[in-house]
Design a protein around this nucleic acid. Sequence first.
DNA 1: GTCTATACGGCGATAGAC
DNA 2: GTCTATCGCCGTATAGAC
Lengths: 194, 194
Amino acid sequence: MPAAERRAMILDAARDLFGRQGYHGTTTDQIAKAAGISQPYVVRMFGAKETLFLEVLDATLATLVDAWRGTLDGLPSGADEHERARAIGEQFVDLAATRGLHTMLLQAFVSGAEPAIGRAAREGFLGIYRFLRDEAGIPDEQVQGFLGSGMIFSVMLAIDMPARFDDDEDAAALLRATFGEKCMQVVALARAAA
Amino acid sequence: MPAAERRAMILDAARDLFGRQGYHGTTTDQIAKAAGISQPYVVRMFGAKETLFLEVLDATLATLVDAWRGTLDGLPSGADEHERARAIGEQFVDLAATRGLHTMLLQAFVSGAEPAIGRAAREGFLGIYRFLRDEAGIPDEQVQGFLGSGMIFSVMLAIDMPARFDDDEDAAALLRATFGEKCMQVVALARAAA
DNA sequence: GTCTATACGGCGATAGAC
DNA sequence: GTCTATCGCCGTATAGAC
């Protein structure tokens, strides 16, 4: 198999595993097994586990921003900032289909104790902010609400709250409170991705 | 030293370290050194690293909820839901003085791959929701905004964004966008805690 | 391009003394 | 209540063959 294709497979498997278990909680052997190759080959291909994590982070951010660009391009040119925010907000939720995307970002944000990861995570967050401000044209007053709802969605995925919707009354109430009318849709999407 | 006091010291040291480095990224030896005792004694006292993490999580949630109760008690009895939300929101930021509190919670939320931690994290999140709803009387419509801004604050601490306020224009813009008027105060608090 | 074998360090946990 | 010594496992990384 050509190296480029192999890399993509490894990056996909690694995003899912790093997203669920974090940087230190994931072994290169788990990633290798998920990608169907040997552990030393994973290390050989990326040099070190940390480099792999950083490449996964870059790829994940690129996937997110590319998807948002596509969403904005598909919008009628007269769309105002609320419509744009709503559209990319929905796209963010839909990206749950890309397994591990949201949790991978969250894991990067909490792995700042590794200096290189901390730098990349900070820079990645700033890249998202710049995109919202400069490309999506979201005014600063709306940024907090947008980022906040994205964070809540990501954390809900991380703690697998949507799985408890049917069994736990409070879980259902919380999901309704945080996602409002879109609750059922979000829960369905999250479950399909899990 | 009496066991109870020793426990409290270990729990404090562990909260800080787990908060910065996560469950898998923190060793029982680091915690022992921070608490000034030997590594086997840490394990002996809590049985296992996982038990220690779960106890730290419980203690951290208790600290948060107790602080919030105190805040609500100090409010004039006529305070409406917006005043109550504002008061406990400020208290949440002030709790940055309790080193590692916010990041510890975040770390618990992303460590759900360990079954016992996942359960405790989910239950902890629900406990926070119940407190907001039943004790603080925050209506469901306000819950998303409240939780969202709390998440953003916690993530900003985790990636050490406040430290970049002076040097990075975009970091400053992001912090202003997410914290508004309270930005300077929040940045100062976050830095004092770091 | 991919594997097997393996070195090496580190970590959680146990044993047992004081 | 607290320590030292230590076991055994696991994880990353390297060497080197095919």
